[in-house]
Computed example of a mutant assay.
Amino acid sequence: MRNRHIAAGFSAQFPPAAILAPIVALCTLSSCSVAIPVSASSSSAMWQGGAPEDVTGSIAKPPLKLSRRLDPEDLRRAVAAMSTALDPQGSGASVNWDNPQSGAKGSFTPVGQAYPLDGKICRSFLADVSASENVERLQGAACREKTAEWALTELRPFKKS
Rank of each mutant, 00 (worst) to 15 (best):
M1V: 06
N3M: 05
A7M: 07
A8D: 12
G9K: 14
A12S: 09
Q13A: 15
P15S: 12
P22K: 11
V24K: 13
L29K: 12
S30T: 05
P37K: 11
V38D: 14
S39N: 12
S41I: 07
S42G: 14
S43W: 04
A45Y: 06
M46C: 10
M46R: 14
W47C: 11
I59K: 15
I59Q: 15
A60F: 04
K61C: 06
K65A: 14
L70M: 10
P72E: 08
E73N: 07
R76S: 02
A78M: 10
V79K: 15
A80N: 15
M82G: 09
S83M: 01
P88D: 05
A93W: 03
S94N: 11
S94H: 02
P100K: 13
S102C: 02
G103S: 09
G103L: 05
G103N: 07
K105C: 08
K105T: 02
G106L: 01
S107V: 00
T109R: 01
P110D: 06
P116N: 13
I121F: 04
A127D: 02
S130I: 02
E133A: 12
N134S: 13
E136Y: 00
R137I: 00
L138E: 00
Q139D: 04
E145L: 09
K146A: 13
E149V: 04
E149Y: 02
W150P: 01
L152P: 09
L152Q: 13
L152D: 08
L152A: 06
T153I: 08
L155M: 09
P157K: 15
